[in-house]
Design a protein around this nucleic acid. Structure first.
Lengths: 212, 212
DNA sequence: TAGATTGTTAATCGATTAACAATC
DNA sequence: TAGATTGTTAATCGATTAACAATC
């Protein structure tokens, strides 16, 4: 399907393009979009758009552009988001709860597609056994391995305290999780083959401070 | 002070180095760290570490490495985080509240240095006028311009609904804010000179899905 | 001194931009 | 057809890695 693995920057922009296409498609009317317009809306050059897409195939018509719906579906296929992806959440603190509610509201009505948060985990006995939101049950962290296997969780979101993050990540990896989004302010180590993204407010603020 | 503006990737890694140095310094004992150890801990090559630092000056001793405390202070100076930086938060929903509490707990006891969340903003009359956490008051969004000026807010965190984000960003920019961290799932437009970072869970999940 | 590690230059690698023939 | 825009190649730009003299 993919010949070579695409560079990370390309994958990031693909997700951006997909968002733009969603906005354009929401305007109604099937229509075409040029690499110029797509680029303008996504904040990249037209050449960059064409180059990125060319990495995966030919999706446009010369002189016309790209059919919005078609390109949308192609990109969804490439990014693997044309199916249900089951997501787990570790850490049902304030941030974890906020994330759970956000994800639930954003994706749960999208039917069989995209991201479904289906389980969350914590060590607090007061939280375990009751739903964090909707039908998203909170399991004890000890059950992580079993639940990952039983429910087929593929991506994990980590919203646990910094001190616990590495242990939880290790447990996820041991259970077969291959992608982790880490909100804890620590550098985690994962084996090759496991994809780790970070979302770290303090790190972002420090970077921003440089430009003041 | 800075000759040329450093590339974004370098700035990102600088923040990473700073975190590592903090961890090492917390171990106690003043000591030296080599580009190899710093690199290992930060997940980059030793050559990269030296190249990044060389961008700003000479901070090491041949045959020995870098004095942890010294390098820490140098990097804090370079990143501008050796002073109080006043942060505003727009949007006191679930995510906003979680972020406010996190920032308050993480930084408020750090005295005069680093990031201080000093004001938050919302349009909900039930939220306006009462603190979101500690002494962080919630102001009405209409007061944003005045409060930014009065309290000297430099960085803004946006945790408002997608539909409101661009208007709030515009208001921040008009008030003189020069750095924004956006949590809303929309592409924002800001004028040159204003630095915009995004933290977007859906976008991250879509990228992660590619690697499944 | 001997060993280690920096700062820096040169070589490599990869990503972005420019340009244009192909073609809808 | 004439105009527009793609897909792709070549040129440019920038970032990473390798290597090593300088030196603590």
């Amino acid at each position: 399907m993919k010949h070579t693995r695409a560079p990370d920057v390309v994958v990031r922009r693909l997700a951006l393009y997909l968002r733009v296409l969603g906005e354009v498609a929401a305007d109604g009317v099937d229509r075409f979009i040029s690499s110029r317009e797509l680029g303008d809306r996504a904040g990249v050059s037209p050449a960059q758009v064409r180059k990125d897409l060319a990495f995966f195939g030919e999706f446009g018509k010369q002189g016309v552009g790209y059919e919005v719906r078609v390109l949308q579906q192609e990109l969804q296929g490439i990014l693997n988001v044309d199916r249900e992806i089951r997501v787990g959440l570790a850490g049902v603190g304030e941030l974890g709860t906020a994330l759970a509610r956000y994800l639930y509201r954003r994706f749960h009505h999208d039917g069989a597609y995209a991201f479904h948060l289906v389980a969350s985990f914590d060590v607090d006995p007061d939280k375990v056994g009751r739903p964090v939101e909707g039908d998203i049950m909170v399991y004890h962290m000890d059950e992580l391995h079993d639940v990952v296997r039983r429910l087929g969780l593929e991506i994990f979101i980590l919203a646990v305290p910094a001190g616990a993050a590495q242990a939880v990540a290790d447990a996820c990896v041991a259970a077969g999780v291959r992608a982790i989004l880490n909100f804890a302010p620590v550098k985690l180590r994962v084996p090759p083959g496991v994809r780790l993204h970070i979302s770290d407010v303090s790190l972002e603020l420090q970077q921003l401070a440089y430009y003041l």
